[in-house]
Design a protein around this nucleic acid. Sequence first.
DNA 1: TCTTATTATTAGGTATGCCTAAAATGGGAG
DNA 2: CTCCCATTTTAGGCATACCTAATAATAAGA
Lengths: 217, 217
Amino acid sequence: MASEQIENYLKQIYNLQSDEGRVSTSSLSKTLDVTPASVSEMVKKLADEGSLTHTPYKGVALTGEGELLALRIIRKHRLWEMFLFNVLHFKLEEIHREAERFEHIMSDTMEEKIDEVLGRPTIDPHGHPIPTRDGVMRHVAGLRLTDAAEGATMRVLRVNDADAELLQYMTSIGIALHMTIVVKQKMNFDNSMRVAIDGRDVNISSTIAASVIVEHA
Amino acid sequence: MASEQIENYLKQIYNLQSDEGRVSTSSLSKTLDVTPASVSEMVKKLADEGSLTHTPYKGVALTGEGELLALRIIRKHRLWEMFLFNVLHFKLEEIHREAERFEHIMSDTMEEKIDEVLGRPTIDPHGHPIPTRDGVMRHVAGLRLTDAAEGATMRVLRVNDADAELLQYMTSIGIALHMTIVVKQKMNFDNSMRVAIDGRDVNISSTIAASVIVEHA
DNA sequence: TCTTATTATTAGGTATGCCTAAAATGGGAG
DNA sequence: CTCCCATTTTAGGCATACCTAATAATAAGA
């Protein structure tokens, strides 16, 4: 079984691969909060184990095997988030951090029990898709609220899960999954916007708007 | 925060202290499945940290601080077992092993949420008392079924949680918490006994009988 | 009491995963 | 096309918690 650290590396590499395409030593160093030297070392080991391929000074890419391991962890993470939110009534902004620890020690039996109790959910409380047991993840397209046209009526597909403070603020102004948002006015100078949420007008910064992924309602 | 290993040492020392009184290096070595040499080393560290006192070649004893740490872990373990059993519908014999991993990463917030969801239980699914948040554990006296008199009607107070196979067998013959057992006949040659459980007569070995703690019904 | 057997401790070594400091690489500016 | 600098890798160390082998202390029997 892969150690907790190894699982974190694989998960992070998977995320960076989806978000940015290329995965560099320094990007891993930043997101995992370890020195580049440590990343180099670990990457070498993961390459030896067959979880990824590494071209020195170029970057890394998960093998099929490594990707499956990553997706298994992501599944556990998201199922656990769902459980914390729906069953234990944790706040939306708290679940990510809790799940970071539990994903590593969750047995496959536990994963199955939770999946069952939750009724086999397909998205987590932030709107992210939950991969299947065998590593298939269906990603629903969408666009950043920043990129929605003025006057458009959008529905919230998913929200950034990593920044608890931002998430807490979003919740406080009424942004939640599946909610309808109407883009009233876009300010070109700073990319902030005025939107209507639940009939109430709110000004939101570009940081917030960029963290909300929407689709046309 | 104490590491996972340290928590296991403290918990085990607490258990041995309650069961046997004296806690030797070799008893810890056996129950923790590490060599006596490793135990000596770790014990020295724990003594330095103030969790226990150590008299070389004699044994160890938890300090107040160490005992509190142990009881905090035991509380998490038992709450988690309760949760696995009642909410996730794990089998009685599976919960102990699962809880062994979770007890270490359960935050105090999680402990509180679970305690609340479960309705502040005072015993776990095996009948063991759950210590309070501040380390108070009320132990209910009882006797081994082996020691019950012939003809006596007893009620199951608690059962051994460590041996999954034994527990599974006990469940299969109908022994469960709070169940009534009538001692029909005691065989002196091997300490086995014939008992009535739920009206049905069953022969049980001394091993089984010794793992069942009962009180007079 | 003395000797042996049991129990416990110390000494020295391994693996993991982190670190800092030093060396190597390669892509972009001049 | 070369040189510089940011990125990356290697070298050498540290901490934790384990191990085996060797030594020391205690307990128990002759």
